[in-house]
Design a protein around this nucleic acid. Structure first.
Lengths: 343, 343
DNA sequence: TTTTGTAGTGCAAACGTTTGCACTAAACTA
DNA sequence: TAGTTTAGTGCAAACGTTTGCACTACAAAA
């Protein structure tokens, strides 16, 4: 591989002149600059990022650590990061934790070893102590989920409002028994969504049936099982809300195995809209739509800004909340009592 | 940040002893090893990957360059890469080209600058000359698409067979006019899929109507427009095959805007199965299923192996083909002539 | 006792880039 | 003319890790 030294030798100048010319320093004569640039291009010079990192203390890598990449929600985040990184000449490293704290720690160690300029993380509910320690002195920000052990910026959704509006939508259509598939209490996102659901019911004095509330790990598998359990209840709900991106996937996987009649017996609401939801079931899946691209892009920009501004590094961490809105599709229908007790 | 030198100073030994101890060299006494390991952990030492790269000539990064990440097909690839990289202590850097050769070149330059141990690429149809030159001396492999300007291994699908079987499936159900939404001729994948379609028709002596064949860039937008054009034909097809992952997305986006009657008037086949396809339209989308996780994992393993075995580096590039199978769902129905000309 | 072997450790160089400082030569200023 | 500035360039050190070579003890062999 060609190095600055090779270019310098070929041109009979010193390596420093070459670097400065390539960096467009004002202290190099225009002729020299042009010559260096041309020669570098001719020789196929590509700077060595590792060497640059060595001197500068930090690489131009931005780390993104997410639980899943197959889920469209996280894919959208990755897309936004890719775009922002590219436009600022940073490079994206993707790490997938599969919601496993051990794998997560492994990835964090790698990201720190790479001296990433910034790290964005959707943390698991139970970050290991090592993970916390590794991240503590680095430029880090949390996305969607917020782990209080991490003293960082957080970019998230106003989930209380999001779930309240989803629940209200169903209440407006006379649903009274609304199933909720939700993240476990250890997840702040799960708790906020749960609170939103609860408060909507309470405001209307609708009785709360704990049997309708399924809380567990934010995984597809759990949601699939939970959704099937809701269906099998002796007194089942008439509607189900999946309060998470992975959970929505699980819910839909479950429903896909049901009979047509059963499918029609439940109104459904998913979390984080995706284009696949508009195809769903012929009439589409009603879903909570999030400005997720915007959130991810904002966060990525913030990380890059923090990496570049040495001063702003000592600012207090802030929380940034984003709103959401409901997209109504065919999966939500007005409740009709089929028991016959009321005309 | 803690360095080996810091550990060495604290212990009163030399940096080389520390490195060797951490690397479990047989030439270090067990006591020293244990001491060093403990001290390193206590001090929170995390090795500097850049320094390691400097010495070793190569980083432990694996670059993955794909056209899109929101499409489930590519997300599955990224997932497989993430898993394999993690299990071999490599790190994944993700680059999204959006099928734009200029962005692609930019990313390639970054990947080369990072001295990636291996680069996997789903190339655009028209790689720039610079891109080709940058990749020429690096450990590279192509995935799915194959650009002949790149003299590398290729891991792809037997697309002729895949499209032949999809087309035959429709012919078996008496469809005669089958629309094809396909990648442009400059893409080898597009050409192979086109050939598969053609050969199936020819083998049964079914007339080929060029109006039914839409070839263009492998983008969602193109496919959406093309699908809408097929519907508007004065003599429209009774079935449509989307011969690409992005193209399937476009086709479904188009169909989602149609009337229920029109939706039922067309049998549909998508490319690269995903869980969302099983939800599609209530009865599911028939699709060509690919062992994409396996393909991506195999390729990633190969890249890592090549990066580690110095000898195998000079082997001739090979093509590896994978089979596919059709998953039948409700979107494909037998053809019924509704013109009334035949009973 | 001398020689040979070996276990354990240290020294120093190298990887490629950047940058503070020093230097030269030419162009000004007084 | 002598002193001062300025433009342009070079020298050398530093970043953190690894590794070939050299070195010191001490043990085993002759």
């Amino acid at each position: 591989m060609i190095t600055v030294k090779d270019i310098a030798n070929k041109l009979g100048v010193s390596p420093s002149t070459v670097t400065r010319a390539l960096a467009n320093s004002s202290r190099i004569s225009p002729k020299t600059k042009q010559l260096v640039h041309r020669t570098a291009a001719e020789m196929g010079y590509v700077p060595n990022a590792a060497a640059k990192t060595m001197r500068g203390k930090e690489s131009s890598l931005i780390g993104l650590l997410i639980p899943d990449i197959e889920n469209n929600f996280y894919a959208q985040i990755a897309k936004a990061f890719s775009e922002v990184c590219n436009s600022h000449d940073f490079q994206l490293t993707l790490a997938v934790s599969d919601d496993n704290p051990a794998i997560e720690e492994r990835h964090i160690r790698q990201l720190v070893a790479a001296r990433c300029a910034g790290i964005a993380i959707v943390p698991t509910a139970t970050l290991t102590q090592h993970s916390v320690a590794l991240l503590s002195s680095r430029n880090t920000a949390q996305l969607i989920r917020r782990n209080s052990a991490l003293n960082t910026d957080w970019y998230g959704i106003d989930d209380v409002a999001a779930l309240r509006s989803a629940t209200n939508c169903l209440l407006d259509l006379n649903h009274q028994r609304i199933g909720l598939v939700c993240g476990e209490p250890a997840l702040n996102s799960g708790s906020a969504r749960y609170q939103g659901y609860l408060s909507a019911l309470q405001e209307r004095n609708v009785p709360i049936d704990p049997a309708l509330i399924m809380r567990g790990p934010p995984r597809t598998h759990f949601a699939q099982a939970a959704t099937n359990r809701l269906r099998m209840l002796s007194h089942p709900p008439s509607a189900i809300i999946a309060a998470g991106a992975g959970l929505s996937e699980g819910m839909l996987n479950a429903v896909a195995t049901w009979s047509k009649d059963d499918q029609n017996a439940f109104s459904l609401i998913g979390y984080s809209d995706s284009s696949a939801f508009s195809w769903w079931g012929g009439s589409g899946l009603t879903a909570i739509a999030l400005p997720i691209h915007q959130i991810a892009a904002d966060l990525c920009n913030k990380l890059i800004q923090l990496a570049q501004d040495k001063e702003s590094k000592f600012a207090q961490p802030e929380d940034t909340l984003y709103g959401s809105h409901l997209i109504l599709r065919g999966s939500v229908r007005p409740y009709k009592d089929i028991s016959g007790s009321v005309p």
